[in-house]
Simulated assay, not measured.
Amino acid sequence: MQLENLTALVTGGCSGLGHATAVALRNSGANVCLLDMNGDVGAQRVAELGEEHTFFVQVDVRDESSVANALEACSDKFGDIRLCVNCAGIAPAKRILDREGTPAPLAEFQSTIDINLVGSFNVARLVASVMAKQAPINDEGERGVIINTASVAGYEGQIGQTAYAASKGGIIALTLPMARDLAPLGIRVNTIAPGVMGTPMLLAMPEKVQDALSANVQFPKRLGLPEEFAKLVIHLAQNSYINGETIRLDGGLRMPAK
Rank of each mutant, 00 (worst) to 15 (best):
Met1His: 07
Thr7Gly: 05
Ala8Lys: 14
Leu9Trp: 02
Leu9Ser: 04
Gly12His: 05
Gly12Trp: 15
Gly12Ala: 07
Gly16Met: 14
Ala20Glu: 08
Ala22Gln: 04
Cys33Pro: 00
Leu34Val: 08
Gly39Trp: 07
Val41Cys: 15
Val41Asp: 11
Gln44Thr: 06
Leu49Ile: 14
Leu49Gly: 10
Gly50Ser: 12
Gly50Ile: 02
Thr54Arg: 05
Gln58Met: 10
Val61Gly: 01
Ser66Lys: 15
Val67Glu: 05
Asn69Arg: 05
Glu72Arg: 13
Cys74Asp: 05
Lys77Asn: 03
Phe78Asp: 00
Phe78Ser: 02
Gly79Cys: 07
Ile81Asp: 10
Ile81Thr: 09
Cys84Trp: 13
Asn86Ala: 03
Cys87Leu: 05
Cys87Glu: 05
Ala88Trp: 01
Ile90Lys: 00
Ala91Met: 03
Arg95Asp: 15
Leu97Cys: 11
Arg99Thr: 07
Arg99Met: 01
Glu100Leu: 10
Pro103Cys: 12
Ala104Lys: 08
Pro105Val: 05
Leu106Glu: 07
Thr112Tyr: 03
Asp114Thr: 03
Asp114Gln: 03
Val118His: 14
Ala124Cys: 11
Leu126Ala: 11
Val127Gly: 03
Val130Asp: 03
Val130Thr: 12
Ile137Tyr: 12
Asp139Pro: 07
Asp139Asn: 11
Glu140Phe: 13
Glu140Ala: 12
Glu142Cys: 08
Arg143Cys: 05
Ile146Val: 14
Asn148Gly: 02
Ala150Gln: 12
Val152Thr: 10
Tyr155Ala: 05
Gly157Tyr: 01
Gln158Pro: 15
Ala165Gly: 04
Ala166Ile: 01
Ser167Glu: 09
Ser167Trp: 03
Ser167Arg: 01
Ser167Ala: 11
Ile171Trp: 06
Ala173Ser: 07
Leu174Tyr: 00
Pro177Met: 15
Met178Phe: 15
Met178Glu: 02
Arg180Pro: 00
Arg180Glu: 13
Asp181Leu: 02
Gly186Leu: 04
Asn190Val: 04
Thr191Asp: 00
Thr191Arg: 13
Ile192Asn: 04
Pro194Leu: 03
Pro194Val: 03
Gly198Arg: 02
Pro200His: 05
Met201Val: 13
Met201Thr: 12
Leu202Val: 06
Lys208Gly: 04
Ala212Lys: 02
Pro220Glu: 09
Arg222Ala: 13
Gly224Ala: 07
Pro226His: 06
Lys231Ile: 02
Val233Met: 08
His235Met: 15
Asn239Cys: 11
Tyr241Asp: 01
Glu245His: 06
Leu249Gln: 14
Leu249Tyr: 06
Leu249Gly: 03
Met255Tyr: 10
Pro256Ile: 11
Ala257Cys: 01
Lys258Val: 14
